[in-house]
Structure formats: C-alpha cells, structure tokens
Write a protein that binds this DNA or RNA. Structure first.
Length: 292
DNA sequence: TTCCAGGGGTAGA
DNA sequence: TCTACCCATGGA
C-alpha cells in the first residue's frame, strides 16, 4: 500500500536525515545510495509493518508492507510519520532569526532544522541514554540488541522497537545480559516498569514540551533515570524545545576548536557562547556554520 | 594495561 | 552549586 504526503516548500528530506545519527539506529535504516529510509513499526493493535520512505521535492512516498490494513491503520501510520519526520513543526520563526545572523544564513536555503525522531518519547529516551558516555558504535550495538531481542518481528525477519511493556515483562538481569548496556540497563528496565505499571507517562512530554519553557521541561526530563544535563537537553531538542544546547564531547570539541582557539572549554563556556540565542540556542548550535 | 567515548549518580564540602 | 569519584562496556 502506498501513502503520499505533501511536503512544505522549505522541507528537505535529505537535510532531515543528515541532521544527526538517528537514521542509523535500529529499527531505522538509511540507504544513502537510493535515499531511502526504512523502519519496522508495531502499530497500536500489535500488527507489525515495514515502512519504506522516499521523497521528491514536493512529496513524501511511504510504501507500507503489512497485511490487512484498514483506514485506521493508515491514519496511525501517517500520524507517526508526521511526528518522526517533523513534518508539522514550524521553522518559520527560526528562519527569520537565522536571516539576521550571518553564521546561520545558510540554514533556510539548506532546509536545516528538522531532525529525525522516534514515534514515541520512550524510544527516544532509550536511545538517548544509550548515547551517553559511550562510542557511537556501541550505541548502535545496544540499540540493535534491544530491538532484535525484545522487538516484535515483521514478516521480513526484521524487528520493531520494543514497547516498554515488552521490556518490563522480562527480568532486570535477563534484560541486562541481553543488551550489554552496562550501568545503563537498570535505568532503562526500571523506567520500562514504571511505564508499564502506569506510574510514568513519557508520551505526555509531547504535550508538555509545548506548554513549558525549556528550563522547566528539562527539569522534568532530568527526573528520568539516566537523564542528566546532556540527555535532557537532547530530549528537549527532539521534543521541539530548543532553549538549551545538549553539551557533549562533540559540542565541547567544536567550541574549543572554532571559538576558544584550541583552549579547553568548560560546559559553562559552551553555555555562555549560545545563551544569547535564547529559545533558539539548541538549533543555532546544531546549524552553526562552524568552518565558515 | 590504560584511556575514553555523543555522561550520570552520589557524597561531601 | 561545585568537585571528586565511581559506574559497565568494548575498542584503540
């Protein structure tokens, strides 16, 4: 079954893909030769579909591989794709802001701003915790094992991202042994149990991100296990709240190299350099023309 | 062997 | 609020 979605004139599918490493994390995969994004997705009634997504300048085409799909399934898939690809985020104000700052004047012509995100906050929480204090190769390994071991299978043999319930129903020890995520595993497992038991509503952050200032949102996100300053700012960024830069080793390296003349910088230094960009500072940091 | 990677939790000051 | 120390994992 094919699903077509119109794209806004400023939207650049490839720029969205290249914005960060998420397209490389299972159950996403990106074919850079055919410019095709693929994802295995489990719908709310349990059935598992494969989404193969390509784009022209004006249109997104989604090939849905799954059995016995009705209009409600298609509506659910469309809603999830719109969220994942940030099709409904409005970057007009950010682009006006960029036009006034020379290091950001390339942003609108190149369609920078949108980033790939997961359909659930739960999945982005797990992936973000798996990026902390480790290498990108190990992050891909941890995410891949979570998906392969605990995710529901598609007819192709690929797996969807597991629900919190799927992880909560295994023991903490079995989860840790399967995922090999070190000290991160108990954080993820305990959070999965909180969600499954109804003590935690991670998906509610989609709404709260629109209601709260970034600082308040980050204070709430930091109550999650394994979420510190970096992870909270990164999750806020994915939720469309851009008032804090996710400061990791890459951010420190960029500021050290291009701003501080090679001298070591503290997190406070990084913060100080971008705080004047107010509610756009996370996007400004990500889109900054560092070498220009 | 030691270091460190897209940091976070905790104790103590 | 800041610092020091510890944390599992695996590649360099």
């Amino acid at each position: 079954m094919l699903l077509n979605l119109a794209l806004s004139p400023s939207y650049r599918f490839d720029a969205m893909i290249e914005a960060h490493g998420w397209p490389q994390l299972s159950p996403f995969s990106w074919d850079s030769e055919t410019h095709t994004l693929r994802r295995i997705e489990q719908l709310s009634d349990g059935r598992v579909v494969a989404l193969t997504i390509t784009a022209t300048d004006t249109m997104l085409q989604i090939d849905v591989d799954g059995a016995e799909l009705d209009t409600s399934h298609i509506a659910e898939i469309e809603a999830r794709v719109r969220w994942m690809l940030e099709l409904d985020e409005d970057f007009a104000e950010f682009y006006c802001f960029c036009a006034e700052h020379p290091p950001l004047q390339h942003v609108e012509p190149r369609g920078l701003g949108p980033m790939l995100r997961s359909p659930t906050v739960w999945e982005d929480y797990v992936k973000t915790v798996f990026t902390t204090n480790t290498t990108w190769a190990q992050t891909k390994g941890m995410v891949g094992r979570v998906v392969d071991v605990f995710g529901a299978p598609h007819a192709s043999g690929e797996h969807a991202f597991p629900s919190a319930h799927a992880i909560a129903t295994t023991s903490a020890d079995a989860f840790a042994a399967a995922v090999r995520a070190g000290y991160r595993a108990p954080y993820i497992h305990a959070t999965a149990c909180d969600i499954a038991d109804g003590r935690l509503d991670l998906e509610g952050f989609k709404m709260r991100a629109r209601e709260l200032e970034t600082a308040r949102l980050i204070a709430e996100l930091r109550k999650l296990r394994g979420v510190g300053p970096y992870a909270a700012a990164h999750l806020a960024l994915l939720l469309g709240s851009y008032g804090a830069v996710p400061i990791d080793s890459w951010a420190r390296s960029l500021v050290r190299t291009y701003i501080a003349g090679g001298e070591p910088v503290s997190d406070r230094d990084v913060h100080a350099h971008f705080v004047s960009f107010g509610r756009w500072q996370a996007l400004a940091f990500r889109c900054w023309n560092w070498e220009g």
